[in-house]
Design a binder for these strands. Sequence first.
DNA 1: CTGTTAGCGCCTTCAT
DNA 2: ATGAAGGCGCTAACAG
Lengths: 343, 343
Amino acid sequence: MTETRARRPGRSVTTLADVAAAAGVSTATVSRVMNRVPTVNPDLAFRVEAIARQMGYQFNAAARTLATGRTGAVALIISEADLSQPYSFTSAPLHGVLSAVARHDLQIVILLSGSPQQESHLLEYLGRTGVDGAMVILEDEISHLPELLRDAGVPVVYLGRPLGNAEAQSYVDVDNVGGARLATEALIEAGRSRIAILAGNDRLTAARDRLDGWRSSLAEHGLDAHRIARGAFSPAGGSDTMTRLLAAYPDIDGVFVSSDYMGSGALQVLAAAGRRVPHDVSVVSYDDSVLAEVANPPLSSVHQPLELMGEQMVDALASLMATSGTAVVQRVLPSTLTRRDSL
Amino acid sequence: MTETRARRPGRSVTTLADVAAAAGVSTATVSRVMNRVPTVNPDLAFRVEAIARQMGYQFNAAARTLATGRTGAVALIISEADLSQPYSFTSAPLHGVLSAVARHDLQIVILLSGSPQQESHLLEYLGRTGVDGAMVILEDEISHLPELLRDAGVPVVYLGRPLGNAEAQSYVDVDNVGGARLATEALIEAGRSRIAILAGNDRLTAARDRLDGWRSSLAEHGLDAHRIARGAFSPAGGSDTMTRLLAAYPDIDGVFVSSDYMGSGALQVLAAAGRRVPHDVSVVSYDDSVLAEVANPPLSSVHQPLELMGEQMVDALASLMATSGTAVVQRVLPSTLTRRDSL
DNA sequence: CTGTTAGCGCCTTCAT
DNA sequence: ATGAAGGCGCTAACAG
């Protein structure tokens, strides 16, 4: 019995050399064929390809990476905390990313950000021959991350305009100002004039932009823009903030709520206070999530193309990796309003 | 000027050889030090380690993989479709997986399942020296996947007991029967006796187990178990099914709903029919998601330790990879009941 | 258009 | 306990 020493490394039995031997050519030729180098004789290429397929040849990713320095993988940097939120918006762009990745023949590696430990791991991984590029999907802005990533030597695309140095970064964002204006205009068109806002945490650019949009719409129509209350993007935050708002400005007849999560809390407070929606008070919310759908009454809400954003991140990253220069891609997508009973 | 040809491959400038040269030892020794081989002289090890750290040495993953056949990465197989559901339960175990992965010093690669194309990609990737193991988180059972994966040559752990061949697979599951019993007992304790169920799609083992649990509890208490209606795990499914249920069995005073998603739909139908919850009808739901929290009234719901399950999947996989044998790990976690106003 | 030949960076027997 | 050297599988000059 031939003593074939068990090949520990790799599970892929067939190598380039095997195919080359079977086809009676050199490994270089097989390599060219597999990589579709155009200069090979078509007939030969066809023959080699057939043999390779028949032998079940699959290239060894590690070997290829070692030889080329490219990995065919991109990192997706997300936060554990974001995912753990019961209703987190991270999964929608994540979905977009995943569906787009297939088109570009890339592999996704998940890297966690959040704790210092995770970040050091992240940088370490990026520093090795880990990935060819990275995408960042973080709900809470982490202002120091961009500068850390800048040194990693790979192109990076952010979801949402990063807080810090701004203009030098590539990102895909939605028009939060425009979305807020959409919501506010709808309230005005519904005949409301004492329009308040439940604003989110000021540290988030999205929250600030929505406040700005609300303000500018009201200003354009000569309406007061002082009915403001701030709170967390959560049901509890929504009810607390709505309670304070109602106490401070009992005359409100319209509310723009900066997130559905807050919206569901706000609705409960409104109901408890005997304000009928939309009879006494019109409400427009933000995110157009399932929470808006199941709310009572169902909430009109500004829809964000989250999945599309994920897809575009991949497209942007792919183009950055192709040019490998210092190019910057910045894309801002429009929002739309989904109308439901609360208006 | 010395003509240092630009090193295309890899970004990690410092190699084992560099460290070896700086320390005046062989690359073999440095390799041993970095891999904590116990036979090296402690003093030497310390010295080498210091030098390596100071030079910012990081091992090249591709080179190591090429040499050892191990990758230090595990695949996470999920479905694009699951993620795209507005309220999907995939992200909770995902979160658990991610948080556990750090502890084991593993890297996560996302692989998509769903379309035939994605599956062939998946198998191809697994077939290469892609990963050392795999975890499967699929909300819809895909019965042919286990047998495909069986040939991939790496250990696999499932979330939820797989439908098919069952006993040969490793999995982490929750006790759906027990959870349903918990819910049903609570309904009985609340003084209800005409207890119906909104059951889910029969193709899901979870849905079937919940039905079984409901049945067995009722049987033990000598109560009728014929008030059954089936529907999709969605708000629309919930309202449709609840409507049918009410028409068929107008006398119900308790309902066990197999998912919060259905629950929110069911609640609306109940309200529209003039049935007060919990005064006329008690409702207990399943999943303990944010939907239960924001429902009106807030729903009592069976809580599943989804994140914990994700963590345990990683633990299980790690132990499988360590033994590298044909061992099987099967773990079933208990559910608990979160009480809210609907009871 | 195809073959030859060096590595890519690391691990690992085999000697010493 | 340490060093020398071959090889993991593939790619990319460079010849021919």
